[in-house]
Amino acid sequence: MDMTDLKIKATRIRMDVLRMIHRAKAGHTGGSLSNTDILTALYYRVMRINPADPKWPDRDRFIASKGHAVESLWCILADLGFFPKEELDTFCQFGTRLIGHPNNKVPGIEMNTGALGHGLSIAVGMALAAKRDGKGYRVFCLMGDGEQAEGSVWEAAMAGAHYGLDNLVGIIDRNGLQISGSTEDVMAIEPLDTKWKAFGWHVVAVDGHDMDALVKVLESAPEVPGKPTLVLARTVKARGVSFAENIPGWHHRVPNDEELQRALAELAAYEAQLKREGGRAEA
């Protein structure tokens, strides 16, 4: 996909996320919308994956450490054909595989996650295994910014640098908000770039909604041999829905009927703008 196609795809995934959460009357709206561009860049452009063979040994691995924001990941996996798209209708319903956190009973999910602070440790183990097995795959781990207050994150950071895991890419969805407010009010974590550099990582800051910049950074990792990479992605909570952006209450809020229609209209207008700018015909 070129950049316009990726931006259109991310917009459509956001619409799917909102419909799914509204239908289920459950879900993490804000964080799923803030990480959508990151996941779109990874799954449609950067990572080596095969939906027809989810356990392909040479696939790149992805760990969603901020597992509560799984909705965008479910929508992307369904869109790519890891499981039928109709299954999205069962999200958070009794007996479903599509629960509110990643579930490795679903093709495309490497590990159950959601207890914050654990994902990077899992990713370190996978990256170390690749090195010892002589495999060329990369491991990507998406973390939340509130998660940076967890001590296990920093233990994993030390291990990643110690073992020279340049096949490991950590990504922080830095939207500045967590369930109870600003990260800097709840537990100050800045300066994140300086801290990760001090732990031996190569750090790259990027606008987490600039698709061109995201793809460039993620495709080029590792930039420094012998060092894991940390992508500090500056994002906006509930990106794409103007009345929800940067509002902590949308961390775990479900849009009502009127809000859903407003949000879908905004996103449809943005998609139309992208098509005009890119010279695309209506799909």
Score class of each variant (00 low, 15 high):
residue 2 D to E: 13
residue 3 M to G: 01
residue 4 T to Q: 09
residue 4 T to K: 11
residue 5 D to F: 02
residue 9 K to D: 05
residue 10 A to Q: 09
residue 12 R to G: 03
residue 16 D to K: 15
residue 17 V to D: 10
residue 21 I to S: 08
residue 23 R to M: 06
residue 24 A to P: 08
residue 27 G to H: 05
residue 30 G to C: 09
residue 39 L to F: 15
residue 41 A to G: 05
residue 41 A to M: 01
residue 42 L to C: 04
residue 44 Y to W: 15
residue 46 V to Y: 08
residue 47 M to I: 14
residue 49 I to H: 01
residue 49 I to D: 05
residue 50 N to D: 15
residue 51 P to T: 05
residue 55 K to E: 13
residue 58 D to I: 04
residue 61 R to H: 13
residue 64 A to W: 06
residue 68 H to N: 10
residue 85 K to M: 09
residue 88 L to S: 09
residue 90 T to W: 04
residue 91 F to C: 01
residue 97 R to G: 03
residue 102 P to S: 04
residue 104 N to H: 13
residue 104 N to W: 02
residue 104 N to Y: 05
residue 108 G to Q: 05
residue 115 A to W: 00
residue 118 H to W: 07
residue 123 A to Y: 10
residue 128 L to N: 08
residue 134 G to T: 07
residue 134 G to D: 08
residue 134 G to N: 05
residue 135 K to N: 05
residue 137 Y to L: 02
residue 138 R to N: 09
residue 139 V to K: 04
residue 146 G to Q: 07
residue 148 Q to V: 02
residue 151 G to F: 09
residue 151 G to A: 07
residue 152 S to M: 11
residue 152 S to N: 13
residue 159 A to W: 09
residue 160 G to Q: 05
residue 161 A to F: 06
residue 161 A to D: 05
residue 164 G to Q: 08
residue 165 L to N: 06
residue 169 V to F: 10
residue 170 G to V: 00
residue 172 I to L: 03
residue 173 D to N: 15
residue 174 R to S: 09
residue 183 T to A: 09
residue 184 E to Q: 14
residue 184 E to L: 09
residue 186 V to E: 04
residue 188 A to T: 02
residue 193 D to Q: 12
residue 194 T to D: 14
residue 198 A to M: 12
residue 200 G to P: 03
residue 200 G to E: 02
residue 202 H to N: 13
residue 208 G to M: 00
residue 208 G to L: 00
residue 210 D to G: 03
residue 213 A to L: 05
residue 214 L to F: 02
residue 215 V to A: 00
residue 218 L to H: 02
residue 221 A to L: 05
residue 222 P to Y: 00
residue 223 E to C: 07
residue 225 P to A: 14
residue 231 V to P: 07
residue 233 A to D: 03
residue 233 A to H: 12
residue 234 R to A: 10
residue 235 T to K: 13
residue 236 V to C: 11
residue 239 R to G: 08
residue 242 S to F: 08
residue 243 F to H: 15
residue 244 A to Q: 11
residue 246 N to Y: 03
residue 247 I to P: 00
residue 248 P to F: 08
residue 263 A to L: 12
residue 267 L to S: 11
residue 273 Q to P: 00
residue 274 L to W: 08
residue 275 K to T: 02
residue 277 E to S: 10
residue 277 E to K: 15
residue 277 E to F: 00
residue 279 G to H: 11
residue 279 G to F: 12
residue 283 A to N: 13
